[in-house]
């Protein structure tokens, strides 16, 4: 599960993965504070600890690939290239947000980036991903669809129905399970008779691999491999990203279901620390490089907050827009 393979970790490449993770981390930490300041409301699910998955996956995908995400999707959106300004403004509920203030944290969209949304119904995105991949296949495109979901989603019927359909129809679909070991307060082994998610996928006759989701490079490598096979017509695959969420499930979670020690142990092998240590050890990065990336990330977040603050609210007179398609002449 380490980045062995034929891939060499270059300075440029390593710094890019780290840069993406630092942007996400800075964004999430700031969002946490902004929630306390009541600038952000509703449900807020932070991605701290899971950054390597978003950074690695997006690095390996192409712009024309379609993406379906969950309510814990800030990292996916940012790594995909949706501007931080637009994502932050969405969290503020502003007109300039990537969903014009109607979606909020759980519903980020960007059609141009082929980002088909944060979906707040657990497993609700999987069937949509099947359809996107079907459209790709029927239109003879070489693109694929990547679909994110959590370990909790594996218990839903929609997971099983979607895996079967995708495999039956040999669709270009990459299922990416972000297994952070908990669905809210329910640990995987308290929800699943079979806790190895790859076993379930294999039962639907698709290739399935467990990946160290704390290692951005390993994630990227696994996605690149899977994507190559999918584009060659191999049909769907599933990658189980073994990761961990450092913060609470949402802002209303007292975390009675896990020990502090467990969280701390995972933090020690966090995706940012581990890549930083590795790049330094390989002589590919200096402390100054790290400091610069961190400063740049902070500055980008600062700009995004300023943008969100100064952006206008959607006028109430526009409330009923977009319920039906507005045809562009």
């Amino acid at each position: 599960m380490s980045a062995a393979g034929g891939y060499a970790l270059s300075r440029e490449h390593g710094l890019e993965l780290l840069r993406q993770m630092l942007r996400i981390r800075a964004f999430e930490d700031r969002s946490y504070r902004l929630y306390g300041e009541t600038k952000i409301r509703g449900f807020l699910h932070l991605y701290n600890g899971e950054e390597a998955v978003a950074a690695g996956v997006m690095q390996a995908l192409r712009p024309a690939d379609a993406i379906v995400s969950t309510y814990r999707e800030h990292g996916h959106a940012l790594a995909r290239g949706i501007s931080m300004n637009a994502v932050m403004a969405e969290l503020f509920g502003k007109q300039t947000g990537c969903s014009r203030g109607r979606g909020g944290s759980m519903h980020l969209f960007d059609a141009a980036k082929r980002f088909y949304g944060g979906n707040a119904i657990v497993a609700g995105g999987l069937p949509i991903a099947v359809g996107l991949a079907l459209a790709q296949k029927l239109q003879h495109q070489s693109d694929l669809t990547a679909c994110f979901f959590g370990d909790g989603a594996v218990a839903e019927g929609e997971f099983h129905e979607s895996l079967n359909l995708a495999s039956l129809w040999k669709l270009p679909l990459l299922f990416i399970c972000e297994n952070n070991l908990y669905a809210m307060g329910t640990a995987l082994e308290r929800a699943q008779a079979e806790t190895d998610i790859t076993t379930k996928a294999r039962a639907y006759r698709m290739e399935a691999t467990a990946v160290d989701g704390m290692d951005a490079f390993a994630v990227e490598e696994a996605v690149a491999d899977a994507a190559r096979k999918i584009r060659n017509g191999a049909g769907p695959a599933l990658l189980e990203m073994r990761t961990y969420r450092f913060r609470a499930h949402s802002m209303f979670d007292p975390q009675l279901y896990r020990d502090k020690a467990e969280v701390e142990a995972w933090q020690k092998k966090g995706p940012i620390v581990s890549l930083t240590t590795r790049l330094k050890a390989l002589g590919l990065m200096t402390e100054e490089d790290y400091q610069r990336l961190e400063r740049e990330a902070e500055a980008e977040v600062e700009t995004a907050v300023g943008f969100a603050e100064s952006s206008p609210w959607e006028p109430v007179s526009e409330l009923a827009r977009f319920v039906y398609a507005e045809h562009i002449a």
């Binding site: 409301r41 509703g42 449900f43 909020g104 519903h107 979906n119 707040a120 609700g124």
Partner: peptide
């Protein structure tokens, strides 16, 4: 009423 968006 709690700003949870359309699906919630």
């Amino acid at each position: 009423g709690r700003q949870l968006g359309a699906q919630h």
